[in-house]
Amino acid sequence: MSTKAVFTMKLEPELRDEFMAATAEDDRPASQVVRELMRDYIKQRRQAREYDDYLRRKVEAARRQRDAGLHFSNEEVEAEAAARRVELLRRIGGEAGL
């Protein structure tokens, strides 16, 4: 990959020295590591934006369903779950008595 741009940044001398020592330990060019860090950062930000968009769409869909009356209250959900548990326990009890 050819260099097409130069990136200059200010940082503390101690940070630079530690970074350069760490890349030298790994026998890797500092510029290669910085490029990888940049790519990783860009990827993380893209994934965060995609997740935020996904979550926003899910919330909007839920709000549309709520506004259309296509929802259940917590009490209704809990009552349905309790009824299912009772039915399952009844079935298990009936099968155990065979």
Rank of each mutant, 00 (worst) to 15 (best):
A83V: 12
T3M: 11
T3I: 11
A79Y: 03
R64Q: 15
A24K: 07
Y54A: 04
L37G: 08
Y51H: 09
E80V: 10
R85W: 10
R57G: 01
Q47C: 08
A62R: 06
E80I: 13
H71W: 15
M38W: 08
G69I: 02
S73E: 07
A61P: 00
L70I: 07
P29A: 14
K10V: 10
T23P: 00
E75R: 15
R35N: 10
R28W: 01
L15Y: 01
R16S: 05
A83I: 09
A96E: 07
L15M: 06
A24I: 06
L88N: 07
A96T: 07
S73G: 03
H71Q: 13
Y54T: 02
K58G: 01
E78G: 04
A5D: 09
R56A: 04
R16Q: 09
P13T: 03
A83F: 12
A22L: 01
A61S: 08
E36Q: 13
L11T: 05
V34D: 00
K58V: 04
R84F: 12
V59I: 15
D26A: 11
Q32T: 15
R39C: 07
S2P: 02
A79L: 08
V86H: 05
A30G: 10
E95R: 07
E60Y: 03
Y51L: 14
Q47H: 10
G97K: 13
E60C: 02
E14Y: 02
K10R: 15
L70M: 13
L15T: 00
K58T: 01
A61W: 04
A24L: 06
D27I: 09
K10F: 10
A5I: 08
E14N: 03
R56W: 04
E25K: 08
